[in-house]
């Protein structure tokens, strides 16, 4: 039984580590801000969920697991909210996504009340 739990948590934690690193690689490799958003969300959703699940299995039925689950739920809700907030702020302040050449770009709402997103 413990062996099974150990193997499972091994798989989860290795997978979580893999996705975290891949997300970080993506933040470096991707060419512009809008694609980097997606790389970060790989680390934030996949990596985070798998790592927390693996640690929960190692924690067993204790308060540690309860806290881990609390952290997991919190990150599960706030992660996408923060990503959305960043993307929305970028869009509103006039950082336009580059649309692929073969797709006809849709019209965007007229924003850009704040100049110079380069801060």
């Amino acid at each position: 039984m413990t062996l099974l739990v150990d193997i499972l948590s091994w798989i989860l934690i290795v997978g979580g580590s893999f996705f975290t690193v891949v997300g970080a690689i993506g933040t470096v490799r991707f060419p512009d801000f809008w694609s980097r958003l997606h790389a970060v969300s790989v680390a934030d959703s996949g990596g985070m969920l798998l790592l927390i699940a693996g640690m929960c299995l190692q924690g067993g039925f204790t308060l540690v697991t309860v806290k881990l689950i609390l952290i997991g739920i919190f990150l599960f809700i706030t992660g996408p909210t923060a990503t959305h907030a960043v993307a929305n702020a970028a869009l509103v302040t006039g950082l336009r996504p580059r649309v692929a050449r073969d797709i006809e770009a849709v019209e965007l709402p007229p924003y850009s009340d704040v100049p110079d997103p380069r801060g």
Binding site: F33, V86, P117, R118
Partner: peptide
């Protein structure tokens, strides 16, 4: 951009 930094 600033948003890259916030994201990071």
């Amino acid at each position: 951009t600033l948003y890259d930094r916030v994201l990071a």
